[in-house]
């Protein structure tokens, strides 16, 4: 497994706001999502497109992957402007049909060939933000092998489509989330989802809640984060990474399970806790994920170190503003 699958934290930012883009590498994100869509005014769309090629290496200076969110209605112009070496993923908003995804795949495949990018490099993120998208979940998720992560079914666009206020304090999207997760699991994709954590403020910079949400999401088998404010990056990185105690516990479980070999027993209860092959598989998964997170953190630290050295900046802790 490669560390490009570690997407615990990320910031979506309007590519036209230069100070966000210039400082993005300092934030400690696993990815940066350069936005051409809802944070860019209509009259600046063409200008925004022209900025992506140069912004990609800028936001990667801290080791983050570079993504771009394109406009649902400007697929050709947007893709032509953004598919360059260094881009990892195209996020496609308001996905509603498999045909849309197949078209993206065809265009990206051509651009990869024309621009010397290894075939299949650029992933597609199909954002499900409407009832129609939920109703077509499996068709969309299975429309291209470039889709590696799948989910959604919540957020501002979904709420507008359903005609509901957000932040009302109860789970409003259970069915859509369930449908999307099921489609993703069936197809072996990473699930972009989170369990319901009451949020009545709608704040985008609440670090405590970001940590609680990330921890709860990880316990439910979800590993994908992202946000709009730098304050949530570090809590997401921390909340999605197994703690030292969890890693130690996973090693203990595997050790006890290994001791079963040759005893003729398939499980053992220790202090009321059952150790069997399911628990062992879970422990192995925790250790693999912890190792990927650690490797990803090293990559980012190294990148930040190199960038600071090149700029002759004093070294400070990753994630400082």
């Amino acid at each position: 497994m490669a560390t490009h699958q570690v997407h615990r934290s990320g910031l979506t930012m309007p590519v036209v706001t230069r100070r966000f883009v210039d400082h993005a590498w300092r934030r400690g994100c696993d990815f940066i999502n350069l936005d051409l869509e809802d944070s860019v005014p209509q009259h600046l769309k063409a200008h925004a497109r022209s900025l992506i090629k140069d912004a990609i290496p800028v936001v990667r200076k801290g080791g983050a992957e570079a993504f771009t969110r394109i406009n649902h209605d400007y697929v050709h112009a947007d893709l032509d402007a953004i598919v360059w070496p260094g881009l990892s993923k195209v996020n496609y908003p308001k996905a509603e049909t498999a045909e849309e995804i197949r078209l993206l795949d065809v265009v990206i495949t051509r651009l990869e060939r024309e621009r010397g990018i290894r075939p299949g490099t650029v992933e597609i993120g199909a954002n499900i933000e409407t009832a129609t998208g939920v109703a077509a979940a499996y068709d969309i998720a299975s429309a291209s092998p470039r889709i590696k992560e799948f989910g959604g079914g919540t957020g501002y666009d979904m709420s507008r489509d359903l005609g509901v206020e957000m932040f009302v304090g109860f789970e409003q999207f259970a069915y859509g989330k369930g449908e999307l997760e099921l489609a993703a699991r069936v197809l072996g994709l990473q699930v972009r989802a989170a369990p319901f954590v009451a949020n009545t403020t709608g704040s985008v910079s609440d670090a405590d809640r970001a940590l609680r949400e990330a921890q709860a999401a990880r316990k439910c088998g979800f590993r994908l984060g992202g946000g709009l404010n730098p304050a949530v990056v570090e809590p997401q990185n921390r909340g999605f990474t197994p703690t030292a105690e969890e890693v130690e516990d996973a090693r203990w479980v595997l050790e006890r399970h290994r001791e079963l070999a040759g005893t003729g027993e398939t499980w053992i209860a220790i202090d009321g806790r059952v150790i069997d092959r399911y628990e062992a598989a879970r422990a192995r998964d925790t250790l693999e994920w912890a190792a990927l997170c650690a490797e990803r953190d090293r990559e980012k630290s190294d990148a930040v170190f190199r960038t600071r050295a090149a700029m002759a900046e004093p070294a400070v802790t990753l994630g400082d503003p």
Partner: peptide, 12 residues
């Protein structure tokens, strides 16, 4: 002013 993302009361 050139952006379509602006904070209001802690929300975006």
């Amino acid at each position: 002013a050139g952006t379509a993302a602006v904070p209001l009361d802690g929300r975006m």
